[in-house]
Amino acid sequence: MINRVVLVGRMTKDPELRRTAQGDAVTSFTLAVNRNFTSRDGQQQADFINCVVWRKPA
């Protein structure tokens, strides 16, 4: 079984593509996802999610 998550947000910077010693592709990036509510002072808050993608999807 494969777990699937869909996150909608903004990339905080360009993705970084690397290769392992075996030649597998690895891409890492950070995604800023807004929360559905605001804080008490009316500010919109966001969570910053570190993502790592391996092999073909990378």
Rank of each mutant, 00 (worst) to 15 (best):
L31I: 05
A58H: 02
N3G: 09
L17P: 00
T12W: 06
R19P: 01
R4P: 00
V8R: 14
T12I: 10
I49G: 04
Q43Y: 03
R19F: 06
A58N: 03
F48Y: 15
W54N: 11
T38V: 14
V33E: 10
N3M: 03
D24M: 05
G42D: 09
F29K: 03
E16V: 14
Q43P: 00
P15V: 13
Q22D: 14
V26L: 13
T12C: 12
D14G: 07
D24N: 12
T27N: 04
S39D: 15
R18T: 06
T30V: 13
D47S: 01
F48S: 06
Q44D: 08
I2L: 09
Q45G: 06
L31G: 09
M11A: 08
G42I: 09
E16A: 12
L31W: 12
A32T: 07
K56C: 01
D47M: 05
T30F: 05
D14Q: 13
R18S: 08
V26W: 04
D47L: 03
A46P: 07
T27Q: 08
S28R: 10
N50D: 14
C51F: 08
N3A: 06
V26N: 00
L31S: 10
P15L: 13
F37L: 11
V52A: 11
Q44S: 05
F29Q: 08
M11P: 00
N50I: 00
T20F: 03
Q44T: 08
R19T: 07
D47F: 02
D24F: 03
V52P: 03
V33N: 05
A25V: 02
T12Q: 11
T20W: 09
T30S: 15
S28L: 02
T27Y: 01
Q43E: 15
G42L: 08
I49W: 06
I49H: 11
R55W: 04
P15R: 13
D24C: 01
T38G: 00
D47K: 02
G23M: 13
T27M: 15
Q22W: 01
V8A: 13
T30H: 12
N50Y: 04
P57C: 09
A32K: 03
V5F: 09
A21Q: 15
F37P: 00
R55S: 05
L7N: 05
A25T: 02
Q22G: 10
F29C: 14
R18D: 12
M11F: 12
N3S: 10
A25H: 02
V26C: 02
W54S: 01
A21C: 01
V6C: 09
R40E: 15
T30A: 14
L7F: 13
Q45C: 11
Q43D: 12
S28M: 07
F37K: 08
R4Q: 12
D14W: 10
V33T: 02
A25F: 09
R19G: 00
